[in-house]
Every structure is written in C-alpha cells, then in structure tokens.
Amino acid sequence: MYSVYILQCVDGTYYTGIALNTAARLAAHNAGRGAKYTRGRRPVKLVYQENGYDRGTALRREQEIKNLSRPEKVVLLRLTCAAETDS
C-alpha cells in the first residue's frame, strides 16, 4: 500500500510525494537521491503522512495536496497535529 507524505524542507517549503516505504523514501531524500526539488533543500523532515492507498488513488491524493495553497497546507498539518494530541 502507498502512502502520501509531506516533507518540510530546511528552507521551510513543503514537498509532497508518494511512497511504498516512507522511511526509505525520507532517507533517500536526505541522502540527495530523492526528488530534484529536495536535493538543495536538505535536510528534510516528515511532517505529514496518509497511509493505505493503491497507486492511482495515492497519485490523485498527492495532486490534491499539491494543489492546496501554502496556508491550506498549514491548516491540514495543524488539524493532523490536533487530532493526534486528542487521541
């Protein structure tokens, strides 16, 4: 199953992607073997993750997130953090 994830780059920008193994993908980004966008913005840290998608659905969700404005992404991240602290 695929995961959709958001990374926060060292310059404060966000990168959204999909992966079968998010931990391995994060390590690849931080080693400079990830997306071209993150190579010059390392280190990156995982700030958001949604699990349980097939590839097609993960790609669609990734695009939905990429289409969000930065303020909308910040709200998504805050809502997720609030939900985790309520659990």
Rank of each mutant, 00 (worst) to 15 (best):
Met1Lys: 10
Met1Phe: 07
Tyr2Met: 11
Tyr2Gln: 08
Tyr5Gly: 03
Tyr5Gln: 00
Ile6Trp: 01
Leu7Cys: 01
Leu7Met: 01
Gln8Cys: 05
Val10Pro: 01
Val10Gly: 00
Asp11Thr: 01
Asp11Trp: 07
Asp11Glu: 03
Asp11Ile: 01
Asp11His: 09
Gly12Gln: 07
Gly12Phe: 05
Tyr14Gly: 02
Tyr15Ser: 04
Tyr15Cys: 04
Thr16Met: 07
Gly17Phe: 05
Ile18Ser: 07
Ala19His: 03
Leu20Ile: 13
Leu20Met: 06
Leu20Pro: 01
Leu20Ser: 11
Asn21Ile: 11
Asn21Trp: 06
Asn21Ala: 12
Asn21Cys: 13
Thr22Ser: 00
Ala23Ser: 11
Ala24Phe: 02
Arg25Phe: 03
Arg25Thr: 14
Ala27Ile: 05
Ala27Asn: 13
His29Tyr: 07
Asn30Leu: 03
Ala31Ile: 04
Gly32Ala: 09
Arg33Glu: 08
Arg33Tyr: 04
Arg33Thr: 07
Arg33Gly: 05
Arg33Cys: 03
Arg33Leu: 12
Arg33Met: 02
Ala35Arg: 08
Ala35Asp: 11
Lys36Glu: 10
Lys36Pro: 01
Lys36Cys: 03
Lys36Arg: 10
Tyr37Gln: 04
Tyr37Phe: 10
Thr38Pro: 00
Thr38Cys: 08
Arg39Trp: 01
Arg39Thr: 06
Arg39Cys: 02
Gly40His: 06
Gly40Arg: 00
Gly40Val: 11
Arg42Val: 02
Arg42Phe: 02
Pro43Thr: 08
Lys45Tyr: 05
Leu46Ile: 06
Leu46Phe: 05
Leu46Trp: 05
Tyr48Thr: 03
Gln49Cys: 02
Asn51Pro: 03
Asn51His: 12
Gly52Thr: 10
Tyr53Trp: 15
Asp54Asn: 15
Asp54Thr: 10
Asp54Cys: 02
Asp54Tyr: 04
Arg55Glu: 15
Gly56Glu: 14
Gly56Tyr: 09
Thr57Phe: 09
Ala58Asn: 11
Ala58Asp: 01
Ala58Val: 05
Leu59Gly: 14
Leu59Lys: 04
Arg61Ser: 12
Arg61Lys: 15
Arg61Gly: 07
Arg61Ala: 12
Arg61Met: 00
Glu62Phe: 09
Glu62Cys: 15
Gln63Lys: 14
Gln63Pro: 06
Glu64Arg: 11
Ile65His: 08
Ile65Asn: 10
Lys66Glu: 12
Lys66Ser: 03
Asn67Tyr: 07
Asn67Met: 14
Leu68Gly: 05
Ser69Tyr: 11
Arg70Gly: 05
Pro71Thr: 15
Lys73Tyr: 02
Leu77Gln: 04
Leu79Gly: 12
Thr80Trp: 13
Thr80Ser: 03
Cys81Met: 10
Ala82Val: 09
Ala82Ile: 14
Ala83Ile: 07
Glu84Asn: 11
Glu84Gly: 02
Glu84Met: 13
Glu84Cys: 09
Thr85Phe: 10
Thr85Leu: 14
Asp86Gln: 12
Ser87Met: 11
